[in-house]
């Protein structure tokens, strides 16, 4: 059974441990600006919303890529960017209706969540269980995906 990240913004306190862990795991530095998961702040309501790729089935990024640089990880179901193949054209960044694959000017390539190969560090680092890594069916991602479905030309 594939697992996915389940995000419960109600539990998020905005501590940014997830961003730090992500940046350390993937970029080797503590720098929240380099994180693939982002915590958005709603100042008026004092709310925090962690947000990253849902590894959606449609995989617009993968479909749009002109050089086959995004592939499905058979073990986790994540859509991974192959750095040696990515030319940095950014077409995936406009094709993804969630805005969760982004260009990194330093590397000249794009970055996105790859579930850390099956052990997502953001979930491990989160002290309040706002981010958990659980069976895909149990998550609230369906609604988000439903919304995304409206973007799908090929229908279901």
């Amino acid at each position: 059974m594939l697992k996915s990240l389940n995000i419960d913004p109600g539990k998020c306190t905005g501590c940014l441990q997830c961003e730090m862990a992500c940046s350390l795991e993937n970029e080797g530095v503590f720098n929240t600006a380099k994180s693939r998961i982002k915590v958005f702040t709603f100042h008026e309501e004092g709310r925090f919303v962690p947000y990253t790729c849902t590894q959606c089935d449609e995989a617009w990024c993968m479909q749009a890529c002109p050089v086959d640089a995004i592939v499905i990880n058979a073990a986790t179901g994540s859509k991974d960017v192959k750095n040696d193949l990515c030319v940095g054209c950014k077409v995936c960044t406009i094709a993804c209706p969630f805005g969760t694959i982004n260009y990194n000017a330093d590397s000249g390539k794009v970055v996105k969540c790859d579930l850390c190969g099956g052990d997502p560090q953001c979930a491990s680092a989160c002290p309040t269980d706002a981010i958990t890594y659980v069976d895909a069916n149990a998550t609230g991602l369906d609604k988000m995906r439903q919304w995304a479905g409206k973007t799908d030309n090929a229908g279901a």
Binding site: I94, A95, P97, G99, T100, N102, K150, T151
Partner: peptide
């Protein structure tokens, strides 16, 4: 996150 512009338009 520029992709959300597409998402919002198309949805």
């Amino acid at each position: 996150h520029v992709g959300v512009l597409r998402g919002l338009i198309q949805s």
